[in-house]
Design a protein around this nucleic acid. Structure first.
Lengths: 219, 219
DNA sequence: AAATACTTGTGAAAAAAAGAACAACCATCT
DNA sequence: AGATGGTTGTTCTTTTTTTCACAAGTATTT
C-alpha cells in the first residue's frame, strides 16, 4: 500500500486534475474499442491538445509510459482510477429537491464509477419521505446531520435557492463535509479544508452571450 | 451607436468574461442595497480577488471608474450589461427533454435578464406536444430546423445522451446556431465560429474525489 | 489653495500554464 | 549486433494570467 501517490510534494492544479478526468473517460472508451496501447501524440489528436501537456499531466503521478511504445491503456485506467480516488466509493447527498436537485439525484453520472447518491434533502412536507423516480429517498432537512453521518456522505451537492446557500454551506461544513458542488449563484465562504466547485449556469450563458455579441473577441 | 465596445482589438479571455458576469451579479446586489459607488479594493474583498485584476478586467472595455472615487454602480451595471450583450434578448432552445433538460428549461436562470427558453426538443412521442411545468413546449425533433429559424434561437443547450451528442452538434451548427452549452460528456467537434461551453458533471465530481483523496495536493 | 487621503489605469514583475526540443529508452528490422 | 523509427520524461522557452507598484487624478479638509 503506497503512502503517497504523488511523485513530488508539489500541489496539483485543477487544470491537471480536470484533464485527468477527461483522459480517463477517453481511455475507457479506447479499452472498449480493444485498443491496447496509445501514444501521447495520438491522444493529443483526439483531444486537440498538445502531447507534451498530456505527458506532463500523467508524469505528475509516476512513470506510466514506456518509451518507444506509449501507454498501456489498461495500466493507465488502473492508475488514473486510483489517482482520482475512484477505487473508493463516494457517497453524495443532494440538498434541495427542486427540479434541478431531483434531476441531478437521478442523473446517471452521479451513479457511475466511484459515486452514488444516497440522500436528497428538502424541507417541503409534500416531498419528504417520498422517493425520486430512481428511488433516492427525500429526507427532511432536520435529519441532515444524522443522515450525513449515518450514510458516511463525503460530497454534498447544493441545489437550493441562493438566499439560503451560504447558510447551507456553513451547516454542511460544520457537519464535516469536505467537498461541495455548488449550483447556486452565490460566492460561498468556506473553511480552507473544504473543496468547493461551482457550476454557474448564469456565467456560462452570459459567456455565450458575450461571444455572440462580439465574434471578433474570440480567442 | 458605438461600433466596437472593445478598446483594443485584443481578444478577450474566457476568464475575463466569466469574471465580468460575476461582477455584474454583485453590482446588481449592491444597487439593491443602495450602494452608489464601489472601489476595486472593496470589490476585491467581496470576491477574495486581487483589486488590480478587477480594474484590468473593467479597463478592457473603457475607463469606467473615477480616480479617487471608484466606480458608480449604476454606470457599471449599464456598461457590463451592454458588454455582455444582455441588452439584447437571447432565445434558447434545449435539446433533450429528459429530467435534466426539463429541469433546465424551467430553471429560473434560463429566464433571467437577456435570456428565455422558447423550445424544448425531444423525439419521445409521449412527450411531444406537451409542455413543461413552466409552459415550455416540447417539440418533435423533426421540426428542429423550422422552429430554430421561426423563434430566431441563438443558443442551444445540449441535454441529450452522449451517443447522439456529436450528431446533434453537427445538426445545430448546420442550422446556423453559433453558441452551444453542452451538458453531455463528449468532446464535441464544431466549426470555429461556433462557441462551445461544456458543463461536465463527471469532471466536477472527479475533481472533488481527487482532492478528497489527496488533501495535501490542494493548491 | 495647499495638504491629505483615496482610487483608477497601466507598465513592469512575477507566477502559472502551455508548448518546443531533446536525451534516454524501446521494439523491430536487417 | 547495429541501425532505424518511434515514444516518453523532462528541461528550457514561450505565452498567458495574475500581481505589484506607482503616476495621475479626484474629493475633502484645513
Amino acid at each position: 500500500m503506497m503512502k503517497n501517490i504523488l511523485r513530488k510534494t508539489d500541489s496539483i492544479s485543477d487544470h491537471t486534475v480536470n484533464r485527468l478526468s477527461l483522459y480517463l473517460r477517453c481511455f475507457n472508451r479506447l479499452r472498449d474499442e480493444g485498443v491496447k496501447t496509445i501514444s501521447s501524440h495520438r491522444l493529443a489528436g483526439l483531444f486537440q491538445l498538445n502531447s507534451a501537456q498530456i505527458r506532463k499531466d500523467l508524469a505528475c503521478f509516476g512513470e506510466f509510459g514506456v518509451r518507444g511504445v506509449g501507454y498501456y491503456v489498461d495500466d493507465l485506467i488502473d492508475h488514473i482510477t486510483r489517482i482520482l480516488g475512484l477505487d473508493q466509493q463516494f457517497r453524495i447527498a443532494i440538498v434541495g429537491a427542486g427540479h434541478l436537485g431531483q434531476a441531478l439525484a437521478d442523473h446517471g453520472r452521479f451513479h457511475s464509477q466511484g459515486f452514488s447518491v444516497t440522500a436528497l434533502f428538502d424541507n417541503n412536507p409534500d416531498k419528504i419521505d417520498r422517493r425520486t423516480r430512481r428511488g433516492i429517498p427525500i429526507i427532511d432537512v432536520a435529519r441532515c446531520e444524522e443522515v450525513l453521518a449515518r450514510d458516511r456522505i463525503s460530497i454534498a451537492v447544493l441545489a437550493v435557492p441562493g438566499q439560503v446557500a451560504q447558510a447551507w454551506a456553513d451547516r454542511l461544513a460544520n457537519a464535516g463535509i469536505k467537498a461541495i458542488l455548488n449550483f447556486t449563484p452565490v460566492n460561498l465562504r468556506l473553511p480552507p479544508e473544504v473543496k468547493l466547485n461551482t457550476v454557474d449556469l448564469t456565467v456560462q450563458m452570459e459567456n455565450l452571450a458575450f461571444f455572440l455579441s462580439h465574434p471578433e473577441a474570440r480567442s
